[in-house]
Write a protein that binds this DNA or RNA. Structure first.
Length: 112
DNA sequence: CCGTTGACGGCGA
DNA sequence: ATCGCCGCCAACG
């Protein structure tokens, strides 16, 4: 039984702890999909509401929430959810990745 | 079997 | 700093 690619991505996202964030590229790497950050974006677009994937903890490499017209306000919701977890935004709308990026134990992500 | 659809990231001008 | 360009690709109808 081969896991669907997006399911692998969702499993990685589920491991991001409360109060921390990860970038699309970081999730791709941890999911053994090196260099395919965009694929993570595609996957998160398809997350449904009744899923338990903490999609709001994934931001872009600039430390910002990725905005898009097709999200119809969910991008703003993402910021609200992160602030509710104690993650502050700078005046320019970015998050301090140095301070709030998830730093997983890499031994947990060795081979597929 | 197509064609469409999208939350990225890195690099150069 | 801020653009544009381009590689990247699974899911769905």
């Amino acid at each position: 039984m081969v896991k669907r690619t997006y399911e692998v991505i969702y499993e990685t996202v589920r491991k991001i702890p409360y109060g921390r964030v990860a970038t699309y590229g970081q999730i791709a790497d941890l999911s053994h999909l090196p260099g395919r950050a965009r694929l993570v974006g595609y996957a998160l677009y398809r997350v449904v509401e009744d899923d338990d994937v903490p999609w709001h903890r994934v931001i872009n490499a600039q430390g910002r929430v990725s905005e898009s017209p097709v999200r119809y306000g969910n991008d703003h919701l993402q910021r609200v959810l992160l602030e509710a977890e104690g993650i502050p935004f700078r005046p320019n709308g970015s998050i301090d990745l140095k301070a709030y990026r998830w730093q997983p134990d890499i031994t947990e992500f060795l081979s597929p």
